[in-house]
Amino acid sequence: MTNTIAEVKKPILSLKDLSIAYDKKYAVKNVSVEIKKNTVTAIMGPSGCGKSTLLRALNRMHELYENISTEGEAFLNGKNIYDMSPIKLRRHMGMVFQRPNPFPTMSIYDNVIAGYKLNGIRTKKKERDEIVERSLRDVALWDEVKDSLFKKGTFLSGGQQQRLCIARALAFSPEVILMDEPTSALDPVATSKVEDLLVKLKENYTIVLVTHNMSQAARISDYSLFMYLGELVEYGKTKNMFTNPIDPRTEEYLTGKFG
């Protein structure tokens, strides 16, 4: 294996020999990676290479599947995430999914504050208002929805819904935001809005992004992971990887020879 661990000063996430198997078939094999704070890190690779599984392993959502086994370790700020309660861990790791999935029974306001409401965390109304406004401003949705906060979130357009889902993840002020192909269901205009947003969000958050779209990775990510058949083939600065890939498989993928 030819992983190159990029030079990282202060890793917020570090994985050590992480392997994940479904029914004893390995989807992720011995991945060791250190992810730096306040960066956008893209996980790339062809379908079935284990990139989504790796992402889900970071907030332990992969444990929802049956017959899963996890080996190795993963640390968030030095704490082993497999020793933490998944419920607590997930409050530090926001997640955004492929398709926008606002809660259909809730208003825009309630969707943003859903993490607090559903967990029964008591907050004063003023605090809630602040959290909702801050989160919606962070995703540049505030001006669009401030007059219809109490309408159902499902009335928004696809792109707005996805930004609402990002706002929902931001409401907890998580340390890391995990995104599983967040723009694959959006049109080009909505995609570029979300991309601009991610670049802005990395000032305060660390973003790990799974993407199929190589040009998206090139546009917005600082670091890239290239995975193939469950292995981490290459990890480094996105610029270097796109201009001067070390592994021949990376080069072949990036030049469109497979994937």
Binding site: N59, M61, L64, P86, I87, K88, L89, R90, R91, G94, M95, F97, Q98, R99, N101, P102, F103, P104, A114, G115, L118, N119, G120, C165, R168, A169, F172
Partner: peptide
């Protein structure tokens, strides 16, 4: 995906 959205917010299973 709705169930996943709630679980990803750290909501305990019974509350989901």
């Amino acid at each position: 995906t709705l169930k996943e959205a709630a679980l990803a917010l750290g909501v305990p299973y019974h509350k989901v």
